[in-house]
């Protein structure tokens, strides 16, 4: 996935931030323990959110564990749960197929980094495939559908986003409760739709330069390398429609101790991230900036 989603940290107190971090560390540990060291690099916020949502109703048990990141005093990490296991196996499977897709899209030389990454991830993928066979089949079908949309230069945002949205909606199958499964299916569908469209907006300029398929170019028909003001407004409206659908689904869940974290995501930070991408001011944290923030500076 893409790692766009994060809570609005100014809304959270220290305990709530620590709880989110524990979920993040818990997912990292689960990835490492189940799928080996290379899989830890796949850790991202989007799957942390999925793990949190899937674990609602199971009180999180946080244990202090040492890892190389925190070798002395250790850090609080959520203990492995079925939700973390599901998030870990699904993120490995999805990342693997995204790598395969990149390899197919690039020539031999340009594709070398992806080939190397795939080599490192091969064992992890084989294990994850055994744990999430249905999802593996769904991802393959999704990529085939996505390729078909690209080939036809699909100008409908909804049809273009449908394969990825439906893929994420499939994650709801991991939930045993029927009502929650319905709510999750709706929430994850719009999460997938939102991520797909935000990513398309984020890649707009690069796709304009390389000539790659971008649904926004086909839908809004602009020739330049940025979206027109009118197109951005229309895209903003449709992104917001998905956020509201997510929020209305989330309202039906009992978030308990996760309320502040999830409220900050569904009622605020998604609008902020979407707005930043639309205005072209969203930056995935660069290594330098991430290093600075790691030293305690709040950005």
């Amino acid at each position: 996935m893409f790692g766009y989603i994060r809570p609005a940290s100014q809304r959270l107190n220290d305990a709530e931030r620590a709880r989110f971090r524990a979920a993040y560390c818990g997912l990292c540990r689960t990835l490492g323990r189940r799928y080996g060291f290379a899989a830890r690099f796949l850790l991202n916020f989007d799957f942390t959110l999925l793990a949190i949502l899937l674990s609602l109703g199971t009180p999180p048990r946080v244990v202090c564990r040492r890892c190389v990141a925190h070798p002395c005093k250790g850090c609080g990490a959520m203990e492995e749960t079925a939700a973390l296991d599901a998030a870990a196996s699904h993120s490995v499977v999805l990342a693997w197929w995204q790598l395969r897709d990149h390899i197919a899209d690039h020539g031999f030389l340009a594709g070398l980094p992806y080939r190397l990454a795939a080599l490192l991830l091969r064992r992890a993928y084989r294990r994850a495939r055994a744990d999430a066979a249905d999802f593996d089949a769904a991802v393959r079908a999704h990529l085939a559908e996505l390729a078909a949309r690209e080939a036809e230069q699909c100008a409908s945002l909804d049809r273009a986003a449908e394969p990825f949205a439906a893929l994420l909606a499939k994650l709801a199958d991991a939930e045993p409760d029927a009502v929650k499964r319905r709510v999750f299916a709706q929430l994850f569908y719009h999460l997938g739709r939102w991520i797909y469209l935000v990513d398309a907006a984020d890649d707009y300029q690069r796709d304009a330069e390389t000539g790659n398929y971008n649904p926004l170019r086909c839908r809004y028909g602009t020739d330049g390398d940025t979206l027109s003001e009118e197109a951005r407004r229309a895209l903003g409206e449709t992104l917001d429609a998905s956020i509201r659908r997510m929020a209305s689904a989330y309202a039906l869940l009992d978030a308990e101790e996760w309320t502040s974290v999830l409220d900050s995501i569904f009622y605020e930070s998604l609008y902020g991230i979407g707005g930043a991408v639309l205005r072209g001011v969203y930056r995935k944290p660069s290594r330098l900036r991430r290093a600075r923030t790691a030293e305690g500076e709040t950005v």
Binding site: L43, G236, G272
Partner: peptide, 26 residues
């Protein structure tokens, strides 16, 4: 809660979304 639309959200929004920390791999 601030903003109820991506286009109306404050310009500095994304900058306030995160406070970082570092995680070291094995």
């Amino acid at each position: 809660y601030r903003g109820f639309g991506s286009m109306t959200f404050g310009d500095d929004a994304c900058m306030r979304l995160c406070a970082g920390y570092a995680c070291f791999s094995a």
